[in-house]
Amino acid sequence: MTSRLTAKGAATRQRIIEGAATVIRERGLVDTTLDDIRAHTATSKSQLFHYFPGGREDLLLAVASHEAARVLSDQQPHLGDLSSWQAWQRWRDAVVDRYREQGPRCPLGVLTSELSRTTPGAQAVTRELLSAWQADITAGIRSMQDQGEIPASLDAEQAAAALLAGIQGGVSILMATGSLTHLEAVLDLGIAQLRTELSSPSVPYGT
């Protein structure tokens, strides 16, 4: 769809997606209707269905993709340059700040949960998000290995996977309780574990 749009059409479609994301963040998915989104974005019904032929499902999937991109962009530029321990700390703070601002309501989680019952597209959005996130963390670990700050014997992909799994667990607890404690703990201990790997390379990651 987007590949066939003119520059103006693509901009209009993106404006609708961003407007819909704003409404869903403010009201929640259950209380948001297409009429609400149309009113907020000053979009006619025919225009909405022109850009999203599948109606609500198409629009929500596009919003989910938008929210997934925000998860990563909110961590930049730190996530893309984990080349010093100071950079890792700045990334840690950016992640915590992001979820502190978001609070217990997770638009992406709500969207993918709603869509996963009807479309595999939502699962693809989540897979792509986690894959890109893990790849950046892995690249950061390898950068520190190249500098001799983390032993080369450490499996960078496995360590990144473990840290990301911990982050997701912390986010899930935040959604359930409103507390950032577990997210902060897993980031602090995960980074501390990476820093101590050099002095104890025989200790498996995560023990």
Rank of each mutant, 00 (worst) to 15 (best):
Q147W: 00
D58E: 14
D188M: 03
A39G: 01
W133C: 01
R15Q: 12
L115S: 09
D188A: 12
G103C: 10
L189A: 04
Q147A: 08
A192Y: 00
Y51C: 09
L189G: 03
E184H: 04
R117E: 03
E67M: 04
H40Q: 07
F52D: 00
P104M: 09
M1W: 11
M1V: 13
H78N: 09
V186D: 08
D97I: 01
F52E: 05
A10W: 05
Q168G: 08
G9P: 02
E18Q: 14
S202W: 11
M144R: 11
T33G: 03
A185L: 13
S116R: 15
Q123N: 07
T112A: 06
G109E: 01
A132Y: 01
E114A: 14
D188I: 09
G54C: 06
H50R: 13
A135V: 00
A39E: 13
D146A: 15
G80R: 10
R117L: 13
L187A: 07
D146K: 08
V96G: 10
T43I: 07
G170H: 10
R117F: 15
S116Q: 10
Q158L: 13
V23F: 05
P204W: 07
A124Q: 14
P53N: 01
I17M: 05
S179M: 06
Q168C: 12
I173C: 05
S199Q: 14
F52G: 02
I191V: 15
A11L: 09
S44L: 04
Q168Y: 10
L29K: 12
L164C: 11
D81F: 06
A165N: 09
V95L: 05
M1Y: 12
L34E: 09
R4V: 02
I167E: 14
T196G: 02
A152H: 12
Q123W: 08
R90S: 11
D97T: 15
K45C: 01
V186A: 04
D155K: 04
L194E: 06
V63F: 02
Q76C: 00
L29A: 06
Q75D: 12
S3N: 12
S44H: 10
I24K: 10
H50F: 15
G148W: 03
S3F: 02
T181N: 09
D97F: 01
P107M: 12
G148H: 03
Q14L: 15
R117A: 14
L34Y: 00
T118K: 04
R56G: 07
G140M: 01
T32K: 02
E197W: 02
V23L: 06
R13V: 06
F49R: 15
A94G: 05
T196S: 10
P201H: 04
P104I: 04
Q89R: 14
A132C: 05
L183E: 02
A94K: 02
H50Y: 14
P107H: 04
G169R: 06
I17Y: 08
R15M: 08
I191Y: 03
L108R: 04
I191D: 04
P104A: 10
E184T: 12
T126E: 11
V186M: 01
T32I: 14
S73W: 08
M1A: 15
G121H: 08
S200E: 06
A124M: 12
R127A: 11
W133A: 05
E18Y: 03
G19H: 15
S179L: 10
G55A: 00
Q14W: 10
A160Y: 05
Q123T: 11
E26K: 14
R105W: 07
S44K: 01
G140H: 00
T119N: 05
